[in-house]
Each structure stands twice: as C-alpha cells, then as structure tokens.
C-alpha cells in the first residue's frame, strides 16, 4: 500500500483544520473586547499547577481567555511521565510547559506516522491533525509546525538506520553463537 508522508501542504484534512482554526482565532479576537467589558462581573477561576509531591509548592494561575485552550490541549496531550519531567523544570511557566509537551507529543506522533503498522500510522496521523489544530489555536505558526514535522522525519530516519544496524548486529552474533549460516 502506498503512503504519502504527512506534510502540512499536501494533507487536505490539515488544510481544513488550519482554515477552521484561523476562523476560530479571528472570532476569538473579535470577542475579546466584549469580554473585557464584562470583566467586572465575570467570575474568574484559577488553575493550579502542582509540582512533584508539592515540594516546590503549587502554583496558581488565573485562567484567562486563551488558557482554556491551553488546558484542553494539555489535558488531551499530556502523559504522566511528561508532566513529571516538565514539572521539574521550574523555569518553565504553565504556557511554556504546555507548548513544550505539545511539541514533544507532535514529534512522537509524527514519527509514528511512518510506522509499519497500518493502524498505528493512521491513528498517529489523526493525532498529528488534532495537535496541529491545538498548536494553531495557541498561535504556533505553520512554519514552526512544518519544522517539527521535518525534525520528526529526521529522527525517524536515524531510528530506522539504527534499528537495521541493531538487527544486523544481533543476526551476526546469533550466527557466531549458534554456528548458523546467516549469509
């Protein structure tokens, strides 16, 4: 079965995502002044980002307009180990952390789009679409997303090369230990 590498330009569904995201962002921009008018009466909630075991103390952030997008993005993309590793870096703030998590996730999923397993590849493509959309909402430019995709491609290339070398090495060792004709 022939596959096309998931590029931003070539993928129709991603194009649709971009246009939808653009429209949503435009709408959001228009709505901001109205919200500001109502700010006095609106109840603002807060967001708590807890660090590991609460040793560094929990941090509270006021939830602004765009933070809901950050929250949604974070909740869909975060894995526990990723949260932990990022929480240890106190220099990063909540938004930076979310973006970093999304970028890492994007690279991982983009790498999986080249998987030999059909289902893994297709699901990863969907995941890449969703994260691209979320990143678009958070103001990441398509150029940067494309950069991430090419980074994923490079990493996958290296992984394949290393994998083949590893298989060759194990095959050679197997031949030595068992005396099997591997040629």
């Amino acid at each position: 079965m022939a596959y096309e590498a998931p590029t931003i330009a070539a993928n129709l569904s991603q194009d649709k995502m971009f246009s939808a995201q653009k429209a949503a962002y435009q709408k959001l921009k228009e709505e901001v002044p109205k919200e500001k008018q109502n700010e006095g009466t609106q109840q603002m909630s807060s967001l708590v980002w807890e660090t590991v075991e609460g040793k560094d103390g929990s941090k509270t952030y006021k939830v602004g307009m765009q933070d809901t997008v950050y929250l949604a993005a974070a909740s869909s993309a975060l894995a526990e180990d990723e949260v932990e590793s990022l929480s240890k870096n106190n220099n990063l703030r909540f938004r930076d952390k979310t973006l970093q998590v999304l970028k890492n996730k994007m690279v991982k999923l983009a790498m999986d789009t080249f998987s030999h397993n059909f289902f893994v590849a297709e699901l990863s493509k969907m995941g890449v679409g969703v994260i691209t959309f979320q990143m678009g909402l958070l103001g990441i430019s398509p150029a940067e997303i494309e950069k991430l995709m090419s980074k994923a491609r490079e990493e996958k290339n290296i992984a394949v090369k290393n994998g083949l070398a590893q298989v060759a090495s194990e095959k050679a060792l197997f031949g030595i230990v068992t005396g099997a004709k591997i040629v």
Binding site: Y3, A5, F114, S115, H116, A121, R153, K156, N157, V160, G163, L164, V167, E170, K171, F174
Partner: peptide, 17 residues
C-alpha cells in the same frame, strides 16, 4: 530477524529512503 528487517524496511519505504 527477517520480520524485523521487513518492518524496518517498510518504515524506510514510507520515509522514501
């Protein structure tokens, strides 16, 4: 070994290399 090799080659094919 053959199966592992095939899987990696499919991935290489998708990468265009």
């Amino acid at each position: 070994f053959q199966e592992l090799e095939n899987q990696l080659l499919i991935q290489a094919d998708k990468l265009g290399v």
